[in-house]
């Protein structure tokens, strides 16, 4: 049985600081080095920012739950929400040379999330379960 730790955050960008601190502490606790802990916190920040801005449209009455657990040699962060499902993995990877050439805006958060995590899984809400779960997974080396 794994220990699961979690925090709830309201959908306000001011909460990002608290969320990152929680993730970094848990990551260090699970044995990730400082660099990897910062990367996991960055990925979680990006995922929560997208939820707060796009899914919940800054509605401070709504909450998201961020849970962490250590499974074998992996840190697994689950970000759980009850908004309309949106799979970040459905967003195509950006070609950054094209991105810069055309001075594109936005879309960098998902790109960063992909580049710093070892694995990402998404489980949309269904008729049996009204919660979307995004799992961000980092190997503990």
């Amino acid at each position: 049985m794994n220990n699961i730790d979690y925090i709830n955050a309201c959908c306000d960008l001011v909460e990002l600081y608290k969320i990152r601190n929680f993730i970094e502490l848990k990551a260090l606790d699970y044995g990730l080095n400082s660099d990897a802990a910062t990367k996991v916190a960055l990925a979680v920040d990006e995922a929560c920012t997208n939820l707060i801005e796009h899914a919940f449209k800054f509605d401070k009455n709504k909450t998201i739950c961020i849970a962490t657990e250590k499974i074998d040699k992996k840190m697994v962060v689950s970000i759980i929400d009850q908004s309309q499902p949106f799979n970040p993995l459905s967003v195509q990877k950006q070609n950054m040379e094209e991105y810069f050439r055309e001075f594109k805006k936005g879309g960098l958060g998902i790109q960063l999330m992909r580049s710093v995590m070892d694995d990402i899984e998404y489980y949309p809400a269904s008729s049996q379960n009204n919660q979307n779960v995004l799992k961000l997974i980092k190997n503990i080396e």
Binding site: L16, T38, L42, E46, K105, G106, L108, G109, L112
Partner: peptide, 15 residues
């Protein structure tokens, strides 16, 4: 610390 929101600000102005 910087996240993509910070990088996005520089992207928004550079052109």
């Amino acid at each position: 610390y910087i996240s993509s929101a910070g990088l996005g600000v520089f992207m928004a102005f550079i052109e």
